[in-house]
Design a protein around this nucleic acid. Structure first.
Lengths: 319, 319
DNA sequence: TTGTAGGCGTTATCAC
DNA sequence: GTGATAACGCCTACAA
């Protein structure tokens, strides 16, 4: 790993000239520029990012904190985001964390490294972001909110997501809809359930929510609610449901319909047949870029379009 | 973000004294040390990693390149690795990549940043690692090999994995075993299939391999092989199989047994009932740490223990 | 068109 | 015990 000074020596020029060649800056003759470029190529010269970041006070990185729970969906989201950031010459860097302390340590590090932005998936709700971090760089909390002044929060209107699900299933004739979700509390989980329950009541349906799905609890909920459709918090929970139903010989969609949420690409590779609500990932990516540009950035008005596939069927409307 | 020089000024001491206090180095009176530490705390002082890395020529990071395919298993693996690295004061940093060019760019960046090590999941087989990168830092290719001098390759004996699967299923009475795998070519995919076929023949069984599983191909393979057991390349493929079988009303394990590979924690959260071979993740993490210590580091002799759950049943041995 | 000098924030090595 | 001072590799400004 040769430095720019060493490169200058080998070319018999000064460091300033090397800099001009490397950055295509004016004030250098084409001849020397080509000579330096060739030498750089030949020596495998690479600028040292640490030195550059030290002097410019900015890194070309966007940091992201990735908790271990539910990481499949977030990986899909981050791949999408990484793609969009690359178009801007920025690189996404993920820090896998387990505990709250690690979460905060990773954020601290992003700030100390002068990253352009910190993307955060809070492992629990309402974690406070330290002031110095939020002052140093824009902190964007995705999916669930964090506490703290100046923290951006980027999520679609999840209550509307719950309503969309009920409207869609109702429109296809379903009158007994069971909502499957997680026991864990988070903005998305709570808001979707709230939207589901609200829309159900307004439509004259009885809401039934099961938080924490396993064999026994699902069996009980099925007996109690006798649903014709299951609205699952996400595709992975829909998958769990699919497996548990098939164990009991209940067919999908003949006996019961299933609707997921996310339309996660990784999931589609495993089971391309699930009917689901598509998470507005591109809009999310756009909003992140907006914040990077100093604009507000929001997902207001973004809806989850229904991706109709094979797991929801029409019901002849009962009276 | 205050610098150590600024901190020194505020305390009315020199930068050298601040450094001694911050690092608990000798040659400083307890009084001034405590005073400086208190001031640092109060100002929210954080050392600038870029400056430190510039002078020491080493970062405290291990870089990892994460392709978009099959990333669930790798995320599980990286979470395990991150945990072990943290015990050594090192942080794992993931770079999500899509294309081969991005893959190489990420590696370049790791080298330029003087990371302690680069962990690599090659998106395709046999990608050549540039010489300068491999000279700068240890490059460890996980699961599938890369080309290039001095590149470490860390993977269990996957041929043995295929043999283990056949031995286990044979031991439980199965005589017609179908192997489900991916069309994609990689060391693990090829070696497991080879081990499966070899062990099958040696045991007097007819090997049947289906590479690229979907509704139609699986239906055909089931008719052709009439298997009592499915050996799937990994848990996610087992899941696909599980779903496709349930569509056709084939029960697991009553009608056909299913064996996966990986014992992936994320997978277990979705379906905790799959019988599977456990990937030696801890051994993998240990081997990575060994390489960090300059020791060889190898997974030789590591086996995939069978995790017996509910998807494999005994067959009364037919003659 | 090119060279020189200073500084970014840290660490390390000298003197005092 | 403590304080100067140089160095890491790069960038920017200014001088030649």
């Amino acid at each position: 790993m040769i430095s720019s000074l060493e490169l200058a020596r080998r070319c018999g020029v000064s460091q300033g000239t090397v800099d001009r060649a490397l950055h295509g800056r004016p004030g250098i003759s084409p001849r020397t520029r080509d000579r330096i470029l060739a030498a750089a190529e030949q020596c495998g010269y690479r600028p040292n990012p640490a030195a550059r970041e030290l002097i410019t006070g900015q890194s070309g990185l966007v940091g992201a904190v990735l908790p271990s729970v539910n990481n499949v969906f977030f990986m899909d989201l981050f791949h999408e985001l990484a793609k969009r950031l690359r178009e801007r010459g920025l690189r996404l860097q993920l820090a896998p964390v387990e505990t709250r302390a690690e979460f905060l340590a990773a954020l601290d590090d992003f700030a100390a490294r002068r990253h352009r932005m910190a993307l955060v998936i809070p492992p629990e709700d309402g974690i406070p972001i330290p002031r110095p971090v939020a002052r140093q760089l824009p902190v964007v909390s995705l999916v669930s909110p964090c506490k703290g002044a100046g923290i951006h929060f980027l999520a679609p209107d999840e209550e509307e997501t719950g309503r969309t699900a009920v409207r869609y299933l109702h429109g296809r004739g379903h009158r007994r809809i069971l909502h499957l979700t997680y026991a864990r509390q988070s903005y998305a989980i709570k808001a979707r359930a709230r939207g589901y329950a609200g829309q159900a009541r307004e439509t004259g349906l009885q809401p039934h929510i099961l938080a924490g799905v396993d064999r026994e609890s699902l069996a009980r909920a099925l007996r109690a609610a006798r649903p014709t459709a299951l609205f699952c918090h996400n595709d992975w929970l829909a998958l769990t449901a699919l497996l548990l139903l098939s164990e009991r010989g209940i067919r999908v969609p003949e006996d019961v319909s299933i609707l997921g949420v996310d339309n996660s690409p990784t999931f589609a590779a495993i089971n391309p047949h699930l009917t689901t609500l598509a998470y507005p990932m591109e809009a999310m990516a756009r909003a992140v870029l907006d914040i990077l540009d100093g604009k507000p950035g929001s997902l207001a008005g973004e809806r989850f379009p229904v991706i109709e596939r094979e797991t929801v069927r029409d019901i002849e409307s009962a009276v």
